[in-house]
């Protein structure tokens, strides 16, 4: 019979338990230290709140005592800037935040980019962008050239590069957009300046389908109808997904496409296209809206029937067109 290694097991179990206890103590010390740091952070913010307000919102004169002296105060500063950037929009304040952050937080984030783990690097990148720390633009570009960056970092690096070097962004990164998720592509495109975005719209025919979708979506999201000609032109595409998105963009823009586009959409064999078309009807003059509604009133898809029903049920509708046509449709 095999001898059971009881002693071994005992050593392992006791050893692990001791290790866990040591870790518990370590963690408790860490907690206590964290609590102390919290006190310093709060004190810094309370002490300097008025001065911060004066610097950022009134005079722009940085006072010496605002400069953080330790990591806890640095964290406090980070919190304050974060809260402001997310709640207040002002070029002046952004400029002042950027000036101060370049001076006091630049090195801190440089270290985080070099030595930190993934979480710390992502945090640093978010802040570099939010606070406009352009003194780190070079580091970020170097990082972007590396092949090992994670998806999240890559996306943030693109945003940073776009913020600090907008002029050359589209030629350098247009091919990179395909590597992003569609949500990230949209976010990137949406946060672009109109000038830069128009550059991209111009080249849309040469972009991969996924990027095209995002561009079309963002045209709608930007609520700027000046690009609707481009949309009409793209509608001749045989890509159904693209066509649906184009119609959705028209809906977001609250703008009617050319007649042939609308008719093509109504007669499409994709229900999503017909639904988007139906949603455009309220922009039509009442008479043609009723005519078109007749085509879709008995559509096979319930959402389209629902849309038409809801549209015709508007009380304002009755005065505009003869009641007979509407009431026959409402049934």
């Amino acid at each position: 019979m095999m001898q059971l290694p009881i002693e071994w097991l005992l050593v392992i179990v006791v050893g692990l338990l001791i290790a866990l206890l040591v870790m518990t103590v370590y963690m408790m010390i860490g907690r206590a230290r964290e609590n102390r740091r919290q006190v310093v952070t709060t004190a810094y913010l309370e002490r300097n709140q008025e001065d911060w307000y004066d610097y950022l919102c009134v005079d722009g004169i940085p006072r010496e005592e605002l400069i953080p002296k330790n990591t806890a105060e640095l964290k406090a500063l980070e919190e304050l800037f974060r809260s402001l950037v997310h709640n207040i929009k002002s070029e002046e304040i952004d400029k002042r935040i950027s000036a101060f952050a370049n001076r006091c937080l630049g090195n801190f984030y440089r270290d985080a980019l070099r030595k930190g783990n993934w979480g710390e690097r992502v945090n640093a990148l978010s802040r570099i962008r939010d606070f406009g720390i352009d003194s780190l633009a070079k580091e970020c570009r170097e990082m972007l050239a590396r092949k090992t960056v994670s998806k999240e970092e890559f996306f943030l690096l693109l945003l940073i590069d776009m913020k600090f070097n907008p002029e050359t962004f589209s030629e350098r990164h247009i091919g990179n957009l395909d590597k992003l998720s569609s949500k990230d592509t949209k976010e990137l495109l949406f946060s672009m300046s109109d000038l830069l975005f128009d550059q991209i719209v111009e080249t849309i025919d040469h972009l991969p389908a996924r990027t095209q979708y995002a561009v079309v979506d963002v045209i709608g999201m930007k609520l700027n109808a000046s690009r609707s000609d481009k949309l009409e032109q793209l509608f001749s595409s045989s890509d159904n997904e693209l066509r649906i998105r184009i119609l959705r963009a028209f809906n977001l823009l609250e703008r009617l496409p050319a007649d042939e586009v609308l008719i093509a959409a109504i007669e499409s064999d994709r229900w999503q296209e017909r639904l988007q078309a139906a949603r455009l009807f309220h922009l039509l003059p009442a008479h043609s809206a009723v005519e078109y509604s007749k085509i879709l009133a008995d559509d096979e898809h319930y959402l389209i029937r629902e849309e038409i029903r809801r549209y015709l049920a508007q009380p304002a509708f009755e005065v505009q067109v003869d009641n007979e046509a509407v009431s026959s449709l409402r049934e």
Partner: peptide, 20 residues
Amino acid sequence: RKERSLDRREMDSRFVDAFY
């Protein structure tokens, strides 16, 4: 360990927009 020091609020604020 990878996500420990990540400030999740950054992600939250990026995702909270109705468009995305």
